[in-house]
Write a protein that binds this DNA or RNA. Structure first.
Length: 218
DNA sequence: ATCCCGAGGG
DNA sequence: CCCTCTGGAT
């Protein structure tokens, strides 16, 4: 299953732009309910003004809200980034921690964000159970759990650690491109013959192909 | 209308 | 468990 998805999506990785763990953390926090393209449009100005946790911790709230305005949830995201960078400075010597237990103590950082940072910024194994991963894990019959932590544990038991990060990337890409929540493109799915949920969406190839998105939605 | 790789609070 | 926070794209 994962092998086929890996061949289908050889470039699977986050499409968020960043150059270091701090930037990775920031863009991931800010990307909630927002397309990657919007985040990438806003992040250069953000990092030009506030390149480090020290700088961001001292940022005027007004300016941050202005920079994050187009991303949605801008007040909460501003609050998160302010508190988050303060916490990095005060508790982690200005360095982004790589341990999951540490990452989730940061304001605005939940388990999903923590695992993204581990996988994308540090190259450490992490199962990123976002909305796509959970939906696909259930459609594939790997688990029936809906609680992300339970899904994470169930899937973690099925795959070796070295597969966790790529598996997450493949599932998320597949979820964004074909295996959509509403109308999955079953007729254009590379793992259709292995999928117990085949038929959830249109199986006609022509009809299904219309539903395939080439990059992240929008 | 519905969706975007959520997190925190009640 | 539910609710809220938010704007842009399709």
């Amino acid at each position: 299953m994962d092998r086929i998805l890996a061949e289908t999506y050889p470039d699977a990785a986050t499409e968020l732009d960043f150059t270091n763990p701090f930037e990775c953390l920031v863009v991931t926090v800010v990307s909630a309910q927002t397309t990657d393209r919007r985040v990438n449009a806003a992040s250069p100005a953000l990092f030009a003004a506030y390149p480090t946790p020290e700088a961001m911790a001292a940022a005027p709230r007004e300016h941050m809200e202005q920079l994050l305005g187009p991303l949605g949830f801008f007040r909460q995201k501003t609050e998160s980034l302010l508190k988050l960078s303060q916490a990095l400075v005060e508790r982690f010597d200005g360095q982004v921690p790589s341990r999951l237990e540490d990452l989730v103590t940061l304001p605005g950082v939940g388990r999903k964000t923590a695992n993204v940072v581990r996988g994308e910024a540090f190259g450490l194994p992490g199962i990123t159970v976002d909305t796509h991963f959970g939906r696909l894990a259930r459609r594939f019959g790997w688990t029936e759990e809906t609680d992300p932590v339970k899904v994470e544990h169930a899937v973690g038991a099925l795959f070796p650690k070295r597969d966790w990060t790529p598996l997450s990337q493949h599932l998320i890409w597949h979820g964004r491109r074909r295996c959509h929540a509403k109308k999955p493109a079953c007729g254009a799915c590379p793992v259709a013959r292995l999928c117990p949920s085949y038929g959830t969406g249109p199986t006609d190839p022509v009809e299904a192909e219309k539903l395939v998105t080439t990059q992240g939605p929008a």
